[in-house]
């Protein structure tokens, strides 16, 4: 498998060097692996820190900037970062109003962020955490690791970031972050698996005639495999899964997210079907985003995330944002 890399072991640091060179609005600590807003910390503003494995770019580093995250901690490819990174990041963005950790629900991410939050408390930094678990493909139960955090992470980071920018206190920012997560659902479909540089070959093999339903963002296989079919039917499979979990209605925010290896053209083809489906259900996509935002290396496929909006959430979504991966209104 051909990859544009210098060496397998330097993938993450070389990515960080590139981000640092390309985005003067960011301060990148390559050694400790933390990406900061160049102007952090902001006195009196809640600091937003997220992080997770690399390979999902632009998540999370591409969402650092005005109106979104204050810092991001990239782990190795598909591996959660370590507590030292979150502690360093939290110290760097704490402007006295506390720090919100936005954590995707994976065992590794949860354990490392928990350890970091405890150690931050020891150092006198107030930390609140919000867990993102929007993926309906996973059955939620007390006896499993629970639902995964996927596309809705972008919604949480954007909307909580907008509220933090207004000077809202930590408890409020955490509340809105939780509300966004609770109102959001996602489902993913893969046409091919991605290739982790260290593994050198696709994580799973999919024949030309089959697709994988309910995939996560780490190249882990999904729950079921089915025959490949028209975009219309695939979009329907994904949205049925969401609608079965929580009925789609009212005004919604929709992310039609590419997994990294699918042309934008195909994402728009799927999006047309998503919009039609919502209309059929009496729901409306009043805000939308189509593109590669929460990727899984070079996986082909998409995920669709739907957030049922309130007036407050719509207003915060529309608020100005200026990050490498998302920018409007400023």
């Amino acid at each position: 498998m051909k990859k544009l890399i210098n060496s397998v072991d330097a993938v993450v640091t070389d990515t960080l060097r590139g981000i640092a060179a390309a985005h003067p609005s960011l301060r990148v600590d390559v050694e400790n692996k933390v990406i900061y807003r160049a102007d952090a910390p902001h006195q009196g503003k809640v600091g937003l820190v997220s992080g997770g494995g690399s390979g999902h770019e632009p998540l999370h580093g591409g969402f650092v900037g005005y109106g979104m995250l204050d810092a991001a901690c990239p782990g190795e490819v598909f591996t959660s970062p370590v507590p030292d990174q979150m502690i360093e990041a939290s110290k760097g963005v704490d402007g006295g109003a506390g720090v919100l950790h936005i954590v995707k629900n994976y065992t590794g991410d949860v354990l490392n962020f928990e350890m970091a939050a405890e150690l931050c408390a020891d150092e006198g930094i107030e930390v609140a955490s919000v867990l993102v678990n929007d993926d309906v493909a996973v059955q939620d139960s007390l006896y499993t690791a629970g639902r995964r955090g996927t596309g809705a992470t972008l919604f949480v980071e954007k909307i909580a970031g907008a509220l933090a920018e207004t000077g809202a206190p930590l408890a409020e920012v955490a509340r809105v972050a939780k509300e966004v997560n609770e109102r959001s659902r996602s489902f993913g479909v893969a046409l091919t698996a991605g290739t982790v540089p260290a593994a050198g070959r696709p994580t799973f093999e999919l024949p030309d005639t089959e697709i994988e339903l309910g995939i996560g963002i780490h190249g882990e296989p999904g729950r079921t495999r089915t025959s490949h079919r028209e975009a219309r039917e695939i979009a329907r499979l994904a949205l049925d899964a969401i609608d079965d979990d929580v009925a789609l209605s009212g005004d919604t925010l929709v992310l039609l997210n590419g997994m990294g290896g699918t042309p934008l053209m195909e994402l728009y083809i799927v999006y047309a079907e998503v919009a039609a489906y919502l209309e059929e259900k009496g729901a409306r996509a009043v805000r939308s985003l189509v593109g590669n935002y929460v990727t899984s290396l070079d996986m082909q496929g998409f995920s669709v995330s739907v957030c049922r909006l309130t007036d407050e959430l719509t207003r915060l979504w529309d608020a100005p944002v200026e990050t490498p991966g998302l920018r409007w209104g400023r």
């Binding site: 591996t79 959660s80 370590v82 507590p83 590794g108 490392n112 350890m115």
Partner: peptide, 12 residues
């Protein structure tokens, strides 16, 4: 291990 591995296996 906690400082360097990440994932679930590092903390565990």
């Amino acid at each position: 291990l906690i400082r360097k591995v990440g994932g679930a296996s590092g903390p565990l």
